[in-house]
Design a binder for these strands. Structure first.
Lengths: 140, 140
DNA sequence: TTACTAAACAATAATAATTATCATCTATAC
DNA sequence: GTATAGATGATAATTATTATTGTTTAGTAA
């Protein structure tokens, strides 16, 4: 399996024009084993155990690289910083994956269905917040 | 209308146990007129025109206060910092509004419908990312 | 292999976003 | 009006992220 992981990583790199470095490979393999939604710091802490000399900046750069290549993904497409909204109508968001612009879309125009109020794990639903990811008119 | 705004703001404050200060009132009124998804800095810039001595920290504190009281809302319920995920199955997220924990939920378990691929404004849909906001089992 | 070149790395400085601290000041309850 | 808890402004501190730079290394062609 070591071999399989290695090979698939080399393939991913070739497909995306990414150089295969030791740091990158360890980073990839460590991340593969992580579940949930770790922060760069958490990933860094784990990778550091295997490659003590690695720099946090390297972790950041390669996480970005993996995300851009579609190997892994970001949990949120939104701006990193706080944004408020005053729109009090029920609505959702269209997020442009190129320019990152966020536009409101009314609940009705979106037209989703469903409405369970209890989900697996005993999660009690308050509301749904939908991000429609795509390309805005300007960026097409 | 000045009067109406003022009165409704006093009511909101009374309902939420918030003291009515000049800064807060101006902040509220300015934010009411802002559309889109402004950052605290953008709000600060506008409020500063009316209350030049206001501090950015005051803007931050009161935005948080308004958000906690449900007067306005945050665009994203997620952590402020970058999070990655390695889960490559189609899934969405359950976000606990108390502890902010994010849990994955499979596309099928969630069971939403809809599937327009063109939305108002000529937005071209790539995919939907749903956040189910609610209370996790632990926090109930 | 060897040598070359572009890219990657580590260390760390710099920047951006947010929060904490603390000395006044003020709204509210009495 | 007065007391006091809470609010404010100035700014230091913290956290998250990005940029810079000198050094090392991967990829590649001879």
């Amino acid at each position: 399996m070591q071999v399989d992981l290695t090979r698939s990583f080399r393939e991913i790199c070739r497909e995306n024009g990414i150089a295969v470095t030791h740091q990158r490979q360890v980073l990839y393999e460590v991340m593969k084993t992580m579940h949930g939604h770790p922060s760069p710091e958490e990933v860094y802490a784990r990778v550091k155990k295997k490659v003590p000399a690695i720099s946090l900046a390297t972790v950041y750069k390669n996480i970005h690289l993996f995300v851009e290549s579609g190997v892994f993904s970001k949990v949120s497409m939104h701006h990193g910083s706080l944004r408020v909204e005053m729109n009090d109508e029920a609505h959702h968001h269209m997020v442009c994956s190129k320019c990152k612009a966020i536009t409101d879309i009314g609940e009705k125009e979106l037209g989703l269905v469903s409405k369970k109020d209890k989900l697996p794990g005993g999660f009690l639903v308050e509301r749904y917040a939908v991000d429609v990811i795509g390309i805005c008119a300007k960026c097409q």
